[in-house]
Write a protein that binds this DNA or RNA. Structure first.
Length: 257
DNA sequence: CATAGACCTGTGGTA
DNA sequence: TGGGGCAGGTCTATA
């Protein structure tokens, strides 16, 4: 199947920018999961060749309903930020994804204090449990020591408990409609979810484009270029506006890659 | 409110 | 080659 792209999309930047950990590049095509479906992608000019997920699922996954250039403009006209202006040019087509919230939540819980390689391995292990990413029901039936055997370390308890809470009715999607602070608070009530993981889930799966997750890399960038160390979320929204999360992703990408 | 320590363990740089 | 330190943090206890 072919999809004609009307929006800038760089698969290499997007799928390798630390927002998703289950995509691999083989030769010239990307292989991963969209909405639980194994999917292959290859881009040639404005053509996106795809297999697996449906067209609408792919449009949603890459948020192709949002105009990237308008987002750039919105951020730049509000902030006049020269660093971001150069990053938007350099990494044009790096998009924020709209992932499946449950998978996104568990991925970032087990990502804490770990290297990218280790994170990938853990997620691969979860996928190997059954066909596709295991549901909350499935994971809630495993024990903490099962997760420890998978190499999750002290995060095992978080995964076990959060799975139980979600399996027994905690609805991630209902958080989508809430106000920012309330949504974050709700997510942080889950074991293993703090400020950073909560905002990652909000930004990468729940359409909170103003979420500005702060990790050690962003902390460095904020110190170096903005002379800021605290109240970074507040600062980011004031400076970059409603799409602050996009600014975060480009700043993160430039620091790590 | 803010800050320090503990927490698992795979991995990569050589402190 | 081996082993101390780090890795996209969170939680808890403490002034």
């Amino acid at each position: 199947m072919i999809l004609k792209l009307k929006e800038p999309l760089n698969l290499d930047f997007t799928l390798n920018s630390g927002q998703v950990f289950n995509w691999k590049k083989n030769n010239d095509f990307w292989e991963g999961f969209v909405n639980g479906k194994k999917t292959k992608l290859k881009k040639k000019g404005a053509n996106l060749f795809f297999k697996g997920a449906s067209k609408s699922e792919i449009l949603s996954f890459f948020k192709l309903d949002e105009s990237l250039d308008e987002i750039y403009q919105s951020i730049l006209s509000k902030s006049g930020d020269l660093l971001l202006e150069s990053l938007f040019k350099k990494y044009r087509g790096l998009r924020i994804l709209r992932q499946e919230p449950w998978e996104c939540l568990i991925s970032f819980i087990i990502s804490q204090n770990s290297s990218i390689k280790t994170i990938r391995k853990r997620i691969e292990t979860l996928y190997s449990l059954n066909d596709g990413f295991p549901s909350a029901e499935t994971l809630s039936k495993l024990s903490e020591s099962d997760f420890r055997k998978m190499g999750f370390g002290y995060r095992s308890k978080y995964v076990k408990e959060t799975s139980e809470i979600v399996a027994s009715g905690f609805d991630l999607r209902k958080i989508k409609g809430r106000k920012f602070d309330s949504a974050l608070e709700e997510l942080k009530s889950l074991p293993g979810v703090g400020d950073k993981v909560g905002k990652c889930v909000m930004l990468f799966s729940l359409d909170f484009n103003e979420a500005f997750p702060v990790d050690v890399h962003i902390e460095n960038v904020m110190k170096k270029f903005y002379h800021r160390e605290r109240n970074i979320q507040e600062f980011a929204v004031k400076r970059f506006g409603a799409y602050a999360g996009y600014a975060q992703q480009y700043l993160f990408f430039s620091d790590v890659f």
